[in-house]
């Protein structure tokens, strides 16, 4: 039962407030998932530590080579960002797909990642962007690569009773790079993805370089379609190669069936075409410059 709800003014204060409760406090970001999980008794906490009042957390910041998204940045902010539309169109598309406008206005991208759901839209889109998370706790500040954020299916490595992800950063788009996000859904709003794919490519002379191809939900966190990525490296951009990437991704993917979000047969069946479409969109983005 929640006994207290606090608004620390700094990250240090927030960490101290969490520490003081010895595991019985919890960070609340947007809260759109947390409120429901607490109502259903899936998560309990004596104290909620709200990050909203911490200065700087609400901003999308452009650095020389990278962009960082603060812990309180909402999906709506991402959708409206022209900076991100250029540097990470897949992320923008992914954020536009989350819930409804009301939810996007509140739910944070960092929260979407820390939640641990492998197919969370923003998380899948970020996973292909070489993103890193800045984690602060009593031990100090660390930077963790994106793929190390997941401990299991729907289990985050981040312990929200003592750790805070203050921001997620990723490199800016460079020449020849493009990224994309594709998902299958049961309706156009208020729906979770049935499966999703993100991709980042670097295209030089009509050849694939540095292909990142992520898919979900096929494991703990978004998963690299490793064999497809390896296959495409240095290959020409042809319909046949793109098709083959889809086939290879399918060979690697192990979906489970969900009564609500699609059978494994369907997910595996449409994965190749989702991969193809993600790759084509990323290539188009790359060629657009």
């Amino acid at each position: 039962m929640v006994q207290d709800y606090v608004f620390p003014g700094t990250v240090e204060q927030a960490v101290a407030m969490l520490a003081e409760s010895k595991g019985r406090a919890r960070v609340i970001a947007g809260g759109t998932d947390l409120v429901l999980d607490m109502r259903d008794g899936k998560i309990t906490a004596d104290k909620l530590v709200d990050l909203r009042a911490i200065d700087g957390m609400q901003r999308i910041v452009e650095h020389d080579d990278s962009i960082s998204i603060g812990a309180s940045v909402t999906h709506s902010q991402i959708v409206r960002s022209t900076l991100l539309r250029h540097h990470a169109p897949g992320l923008v598309d992914a954020c536009r797909k989350v819930g409804s406008l009301q939810i996007r206005n509140v739910a944070t991208v960092v929260g979407n990642v820390v939640n641990g759901n492998p197919a969370a839209d923003a998380a899948v889109a970020l996973a292909c962007l070489d993103a890193t998370a800045t984690v602060v706790d009593e031990q100090g500040t660390r930077t963790i690569p994106f793929n190390e954020l997941y401990a299991g299916i729907c289990i985050s490595c981040i312990n929200s009773s003592c750790q805070i992800v203050t921001q997620i950063s990723f490199p800016k788009k460079k020449a020849g790079e493009g990224s994309s996000y594709i998902r299958m859904e049961q309706r156009k709003a208020l729906s979770l993805p049935m499966l999703n794919v993100s991709s980042k490519v670097r295209v030089i002379n009509s050849q694939f370089q540095d292909v990142q191809l992520l898919m979900a939900p096929v494991g703990a966190g978004p998963q690299h379609a490793v064999t497809a990525e390896d296959f495409l490296m240095g290959k020409d951009i042809t319909d046949e190669n793109i098709r083959q990437a889809g086939v290879l991704a399918r060979e690697q993917a192990t979906f489970r069936s969900s009564a609500v979000r699609g059978s494994k047969e369907y997910r595996i069946g449409v994965l190749p075409v989702c991969v193809e479409r993600a790759l084509r969109a990323a290539i188009a983005d790359a060629q657009e410059g």
């Binding site: 709800y5 809260g31 759109t32 409120v35 909620l48 709200d50 009301q102 206005n105 509140v106």
Partner: peptide, 12 residues
């Protein structure tokens, strides 16, 4: 901004 008040902690 439009929000769902059913998901909004009053404290906020």
């Amino acid at each position: 901004e439009a929000v769902n008040s059913c998901l909004l902690p009053a404290m906020r």
